[in-house]
Amino acid sequence: MVKVEDIKKEAKRILKEGKVKYIIGYKKSTNGLMSVPAFIESPEDVENLIWDPTCVYNLTRFLVDEKRRKAREKNPDERPVGIVVKGCDSRAIIVLLQEKFINRENIYVLGISCETTGVLDEKKLLKKLNGKKAEKVEYDEKDNFIITTLDGKSKVPADEILAERCLECRANFPVINDILFGEKVDRKLDNRFKSLEKIESLSKEKRWGFWKEQLDKCIRCYACRSVCPMCYCDECVVDTINFAVTADTTAEEKAQRIKWVEKSPTTSENFVYHFVRAIHLAGRCIDCGECERVCPMDIPLRFLNKKMEKEAKELFDYDAGFDPDQPSLVSCFKDEDPEDFIR
């Protein structure tokens, strides 16, 4: 695993030189094992930075907030923001660049390669420890995690507690960076859609049963939307009021506005929400798995996005998050796009 000292050194340098206005990275939580996002503004605070297998968050979401904040400021600080990214997160940056949501000069990318490992799945870890609290998780560079609890240390094979997305990660190194930590290690991955294919192979009615059961659980808290770096729309079609209401808007006009989805978390409405989400993320989702991680109802949201990822690949040979200059999936076409389903 990359040494945090190297990251700190660079962080200190760019802050001292005033190259960046602040750095978004990870720090230790005051409560529990998992890291939390850190906003480092001065060279002294750099000591707080950490890098370990609990650095799961995709911090690029904060670039969306940064852009909004900046738009409101009268005299914004034009210097770039430093941001720590893993491979998956770096692909989110590519998509944001591709969609011209951010500019290259707005960011200074501290890219970290996951090398031979990845990040933890907290839920898997909890299960593994039977509720015991882990104090520390380290990687032993030999495909194991060493977990320290009150009872001492234990060794767990990495793939038992790695995040699902890491097990199917197709590029575990930053595809864009201003400085790269660690080495680009090619991990062998025979099938990045393996877990998805388990669901695909179910019969139609079984699939329906599966999704109905899962999506019925959704309470429409929209945490999945809030955490997603690609869900940056100012207004979302699933919200009841998604048009500006001014002093001149009459009651009649308000009443006539299209309400695409009801707020109530019932089967039919939840499906519309999740369809919209999946389609709006097709060709854009880079599989950071954040939606699934934050879902309080444990809905396997990743599969919906993964399905679109797979179809984009198979039907249109399209891969999200590698080339900021390629047109986005649904705003381009090829003459030879499949049309065997059309009458």
């Binding site: 079984k206 699939r207 369809f275 399905k307 179809e311 039907l315 249109f316 649904v330 003459d335 796009d337």
Partner: peptide, 21 residues
């Protein structure tokens, strides 16, 4: 219609995936 062809293909796959006929 070329854009539609792409988009509709994805919608079709998604609907089938969740178990619609």
């Amino acid at each position: 219609n070329y854009y539609a062809r792409r988009r509709i293909a994805l919608v079709k796959k998604l609907l089938e995936f969740i178990g619609l006929e």
